[in-house]
Design a protein around this nucleic acid. Structure first.
Lengths: 171, 171
DNA sequence: AAAGATTGATCTGTCAATCTTG
DNA sequence: CAAGATTGACAGATCAATCTTT
């Protein structure tokens, strides 16, 4: 049986993990607040942003799933809300009738344009500013190293057969 | 009106934020899976851990709220589940009858002892290993810098009047 | 049979309101 | 009235099951 050693309870790895969690919670508390003022959740913002960045301002549901940390049904629901709000429109895929495109509407682009500058400001204030000019590059490299391991697909460099550009995209 | 400039859509700050989100999603997907095998969610694990580390193996509900990224009602619900499962017990506070202590039970300690080593292994594998020996200290310092700004209270060094030790604690 | 998408049931957490004690 | 805790109503996401198309 495993005894509950006191060293285990104070393992430095717990501290690191705790810091990561606190940072994440803190930062997206701030950004969620800002985005909320523009009537979108973080997940919705992420979808709008990805659509706006994509070739035809559109992406298949499956590709959205691959690019976010949501499940396919999660994406269905986010797109439901966005299309209900008129920020996104569903469109049938001509070549494969199983697929559906989500297309960002002019209203969606407008909403994004309205929310984005403030969002960048929050990221600047709560992430870049505290890091400082010096630590930034190192921090980003560290994140990238971890990302490449926990999300190997995000960097898999095979030229996208269908329309999924392998950008680094936030939510 | 704000035009949707193409530069805004590709601002490097979005990349950084996106990396942070991906890393967080990736890492706690892994750890959630491991913890799930022991029948606890990440939030529940965090509460058990904090209780185990606390002076009398107990904490007031309020202190738990302060130490996690949950609301007070969120903590109520987590403790509900844990006490339903027999891993935690509620106990009245003698000095202030508004307060309730959550006390970890022997079963709770056992569960924690059972889950903790595997959890540490996951953190090692998905966080420390990818970072590598060299980047670790820098990364932790960076996180701490951000944490201090987004969560100023977590480091406020006033000696805890009531029982809330200002550890660095994960969830 | 597998891939894409959606739906119903459920889980976890929040918010606002409430109750009790200080 | 403020602080601590809980509760009801609800939002957001997941899982497993389902339906359609390949």
């Amino acid at each position: 049986v495993t005894r509950l050693d006191d060293d285990l309870l104070h393992d430095p790895r717990l501290t690191l993990m705790g810091l990561l969690i606190e940072v994440m919670a803190g930062v997206d508390c701030k950004t969620t607040g800002q985005l909320g003022q523009h009537g979108v959740t973080a997940a919705e913002f992420g979808v709008l942003l990805r659509l706006a960045r994509s070739p035809q301002r559109q992406l298949r549901m499956t590709d959205l799933t691959a690019q976010t940390s949501l499940t396919n049904s999660g994406i269905t629901r986010v797109v439901d809300r966005l299309s209900q709000a008129g920020l996104v429109r569903r469109e049938a895929c001509p070549s494969d009738r199983r697929s559906t495109y989500a297309v960002i509407t002019p209203a969606g682009l407008a909403r994004l344009a309205q929310a984005l500058p403030g969002h960048l400001a929050e990221v600047q204030r709560w992430l870049l500013d505290p890091l400082g000019e010096g630590a930034l590059a190192e921090f980003e490299a560290a994140l990238r190293a971890v990302r490449d391991v926990v999300r190997p697909d995000a960097t898999a460099g095979i030229p996208p057969a269908a329309g999924s550009p392998a950008y680094d995209v936030p939510a």
